[in-house]
């Protein structure tokens, strides 16, 4: 029961609740905040462990569940979760564990790949699907940039269009703990995505299985994943729309949180209605 009047300005949202879920191999950290239809947000390679402005904006309309992937942010490395196929089962378990009824799934970059795999494996377990510059496809003519080989300044430059925001995201002299935390996240990413590099060669031919209304969104200046990947996703997912966000790098919701929250919210609100879920 909500008492917030949506037309009286920006909706108030609950402060995010931070919790840990105990699983057989360890525990998983997640944020949850907001009210409304459930949204499972699957983060990109960077940014685990934080409740971002983007989450906060989505939480104005939805109940957002933002877990850290195993081995990222505040989540333990779960020894048995060692591939993206394991991650799919992991998130199906998590959906069940949290008692979510066909949550919308929003995934960015690496998390977008997991979201697409989830929608392929269990089309009826999710509501709508939003893929924000997802990895996952193997397009030899449009290679994904090798972020494993980039120094922090190179990574900042590749991720952001706005250099000021890049500088803020990558402080010049990080302390040892910050370096170790970033190395841990990248190690988790490498476990899942070193080879095949950020892709599952079989995903492309399975995309036809997705039944969810799908939004594929891309930043206009993506120097990590070429937009050809977005076009391929949008072509092969049966009910897919494509949207471009201007003046933005692959950092997406870090660089332009308002714009990404707006297209996501608008799409999900419409999709939620179609699915017969009341807000």
């Amino acid at each position: 029961m909500t008492t917030v009047a949506n037309d009286a300005g920006p909706a108030r949202v609950d402060a995010p609740d931070e919790q840990y879920l105990d699983l057989p191999g360890g525990r998983v950290h997640l944020f949850r905040g907001g009210r409304g239809a459930p949204v499972l947000f699957l983060h990109a390679a960077g940014g685990a462990g934080y409740w971002h402005e983007f989450h906060q904006l989505l939480a104005g309309r939805f109940e957002v569940f933002a877990p850290d992937h195993p081995g990222f942010g505040g989540s333990d490395e779960l020894a048995e979760v060692e591939g993206v196929d394991d991650l799919v089962y992991h998130y199906l378990d998590l959906i069940e564990r949290l008692g979510l009824d066909r949550p919308h799934v929003v995934g960015a970059s690496f998390g977008g790949w997991i979201a697409a795999e989830l929608a392929v494996a269990a089309p009826h377990a999710i509501g709508s699907l939003v893929l924000l510059s997802p990895a996952g496809l193997r397009l030899p003519d449009h290679p994904v940039a090798d972020l494993f080989r980039m120094s922090p300044p190179q990574l900042a430059d590749a991720l952001f269009q706005d250099t000021a925001k890049a500088a803020a995201a990558f402080p010049a002299n990080p302390d040892v703990d910050t370096i170790l935390a970033a190395y841990r996240d990248m190690t988790a990413l490498a476990r899942f995505a070193w080879t095949p590099f950020l892709n599952n060669p079989k995903l492309e031919r399975r995309l036809h299985r997705i039944t969810a209304p799908t939004l594929v969104a891309w930043p206009s200046n993506d120097k990590i994943i070429p937009v050809a990947h977005g076009n391929r996703y949008a072509d092969l997912i049966p009910k897919a729309e494509f949207a471009m966000v201007e003046d933005c790098g692959h950092a997406m919701y870090f660089e332009r949180p308002a714009e990404f929250a707006e297209i996501t919210t608008n799409f999900l609100a419409a999709g939620a209605g179609l699915n017969g879920v009341s807000l």
Binding site: F148, S151, Y183, R184
Partner: peptide
Amino acid sequence: ELVFPPGYMTPSSLR
């Protein structure tokens, strides 16, 4: 980045 790709070092060794 070339010498210590992710996972090559244990956290304690890297520290």
